[in-house]
Design a binder for these strands. Sequence first.
RNA 1: GACCCCAUCGUCUAGCCUGGUCAGGACACAAGCUUUUCAAGCUUGCAGCGCGGGUUCAAAUCCCGCUGGGGUCGCCA
Length: 443
Amino acid sequence: MVKVRFAPSPTGYLHIGGARTALFNWMYAKSQNGTFVLRIEDTDLERSKQEYVDEILDSVAWLGMSWDELYFQSKRFDIYRAHAEKLLKAGLAYKDNGAIFLKVKKQEIKIYDLIRGEINFDTSYFTAHNDDGAPVLDKEGQVVLKDEVLIKADGSPTYNFCCVVDDALMEMTCIIRGEDHISNTPKQILMYEALGYKPPKFAHLPLIMGKDGGRLSKRTGAVAVSEYRKMGFLPQAIDNYLMLLGWAPGNNQEIMNLNSAIKIFSIKKINKAAAVFDMDKLKWINTQYLKQMNVVDVASFLKPFLKERGFIDESTDEMWLQKIIGLYKGRFSTLDEFLERTDFIFQENIIIDSSLVLKHLTNDKKEIFFQLAQAYETLESFDSKSLEAVFRGLVEKCGLKASDVVHPVRVSLTGKDVGPGLFETMEILGRVKTVNRLRQAFR
RNA sequence: GACCCCAUCGUCUAGCCUGGUCAGGACACAAGCUUUUCAAGCUUGCAGCGCGGGUUCAAAUCCCGCUGGGGUCGCCA
């Protein structure tokens, strides 16, 4: 029976790298019909915050990962202490300055990694080194090994110790975590051995890097899952993108939901090399999911955001909103982009960039704008077909070309020189805003 | 610096284990079609096995070295 865990520390928001680690753990558990545990590593009482715990739990759930068990290390301090005492009694650990240390002797440590194969370490390298890189030696010329802290002087247990005790007690079968933990692994193996527990298997995931090749950070873009949520990414899209970072479903398939993915997921097929996070591809995937969704679902996804900005309220016509979404489907990859393109619909007044005014709202268009406003004001049915018919009629009468008027009108109505079909746009905008904006164009 | 990990188009990757298909797909980019513009869509194009040695009839694939990148060196997690 497979059992794995995601063990975040609530000293910050869940970031995209952590989310991917959680995802691979979750996918592995699900693919093996195993158990997925969420363990909050809040042993650092100073830095751990409840708001981060809430945010992490919320983000994990939002991404569609459900956990079978939930633990908080802060509630298990007595367990860690008991284990330390046991080592003390067995003579494998000692007390010094209030802290409890595990004695480390020189030895080779072999770890088996499901992704990387065998990795070998020598405990001599745990020691401090001189400036020239040589290990510190004692009087007899032996390397001075640095013993591992189990319990700190303030009585709180160390990360490595809690991790080992918990992973052993919770009977984890495989530890899937980031590559940055490789160097912790030999220290932890030592603790497993001292405690008399059999070490689990390990799988160290390649790291996710920013565009600059360095670690993913705020400098290279958003890192918190919650930020992506606010930007209007769909959880399915983020899951899909994240699973592609270091793993491939095969058959040249890329768009794949979690349910299908867990059927074919294999931990051994995970890549060894670090991957660069590519926002463009994430956006593209988000677009793919948005396009697969029907307007009703997109509407319910968008609504909370639109409400928050005061763009819509309870009285907003549902059909009207769906019509807008239908018109813009395929034209936006995230909520942010949607708002960027449709703000003119929701806002009372628009600001037209002066360069667009200069280019499109030239005085020779004044007359046709006047006539259009006049005609639209009294047009019986304000639908795109009628609007277009009137438009073409008037334009021809004025001896103008439709395309020469379409763009200026679009600019006057939307403040943009690009967008969906002009007449559908008018229909959605409605008579009042359309006529007013046509009139205001030359004021 | 020491130790550890890694190395296929600009990016994500398939192929590597079990050497022999013009190294396949996707994003991005470019061009064309379509169109009142944009986007979408369709078509096409550009672009890669880091370098050097081996092993072999044959190497992206196996071995070694180099170079390059990343990670870790806390009584943080």
